[in-house]
């Protein structure tokens, strides 16, 4: 196909499936808020935090309580939830500390146990019905995008997700803190020998990662609705994202999130008959070509 032909086909595809593409981007950016923390924590600490999905869900519930339950502002709900996420990360650091010299399996089992406990506690407190946070009032309208109307809130989620990706990338790649972080990923013992408290760096990354997951739960609540089971669903999607993108890579998490968002949304719209296979099929294809993910390195 020539460039002209592609150029001619593209507007048709865009018009017909614009909403699918935009929905895919919104879901993708939500997944990114989960995946980036998961990936950074794994890269730095070698811990696969299977409680990440539970923290996403709990963050949403906490904000739901503040905004819908207590009638506070959206910003207050977001702030409380992010604070909750950070505290949860610090607590997780304490819980993981006694077993930090054991293998992946023990850490995975421990965080999975925590995930079960947390999600059951969430069901005890908030029940198993769908709960949703209405989007902020100033975003409760539609915006015209390329001739079609689209909810402003979802566009805002996309914008926030991209901004987050840029900020995290710049912090990790361009600041002194980021340099310490990257060095610790490469060689923990060496960084520690230079007099830097690696334990504290890890704790900070853990708190940042879980705060981001909690943040994702809040901004995702108006789109996904909160209910038991969302935690596991989001966790598996985020795991697929970081495996496709390459563990420990921020650009990888972003690309993986966008790919999976589109597979979920545009893929279903274009080829509905293979939709049930698309998610894991995409992952198998990527790993068959690149066993370490798109941005992963050996």
């Amino acid at each position: 196909m020539t460039f002209a032909a592609v150029g001619a086909a593209l507007p048709g595809l865009l018009n017909e499936h614009l909403v699918s593409i935009l929905n895919g981007l919104a879901v993708g950016m939500l997944l990114f808020t989960m995946a980036v923390g998961l990936s950074l924590i794994f890269g730095l600490m070698d811990v696969l935090n299977l409680a990440h999905g539970a923290i996403f869900l709990l963050g949403g519930y906490v904000a739901f309580q503040v905004i819908v339950g207590e009638g506070q502002s959206w910003l207050a709900g977001l702030a409380v939830a992010v604070g909750f996420g950070a505290v949860a990360g610090l607590a997780l650091g304490g819980i993981l500390r006694p077993i930090r010299h054991r293998g992946h399996l023990d850490q995975a089992l421990l965080t999975l146990g925590l995930a079960f406990v947390l999600s059951d506690l969430a069901t005890i407190f908030w029940g198993s019905d769908f709960q949703t946070i209405p989007s902020p009032v100033f975003l409760q309208r539609s915006v015209e995008v390329l001739g079609q109307f689209y909810p402003a809130y979802r566009l805002a989620v996309m914008g926030v997700g991209f901004a987050l990706a840029v900020v995290v990338y710049l912090v990790v790649e361009r600041t002194q803190v980021g340099a310490v972080l990257r060095a610790a990923v490469e060689d923990r013992a060496m960084v520690s020998a230079l007099g830097i408290n690696v334990g504290r760096v890890m704790l900070a990354v853990l708190a940042l990662g879980t705060a981001l997951a909690s943040f994702g739960g809040v901004i995702g609540a108006p789109i996904l609705s909160l209910s038991p089971g969302v935690d596991a669903e989001v966790l598996i999607l985020a795991l697929i994202v970081i495996v496709i993108g390459g563990l420990g890579s921020i650009p990888g998490a972003l690309v993986g999130a966008i790919v999976i968002g589109q597979v979920q949304s545009l893929g279903t719209a274009l080829v509905p008959q293979v939709a049930p296979f698309a998610l894991f099929g995409a992952m198998v294809i990527v790993l068959a070509v690149r066993p370490e993910g798109i941005f992963g390195s050996r």
Partner: peptide, 14 residues
Amino acid sequence: WRLVLGVVFIGVVY
């Protein structure tokens, strides 16, 4: 049962 199973996991690891 998830709550109990979770506690069992945590107990086994520790």
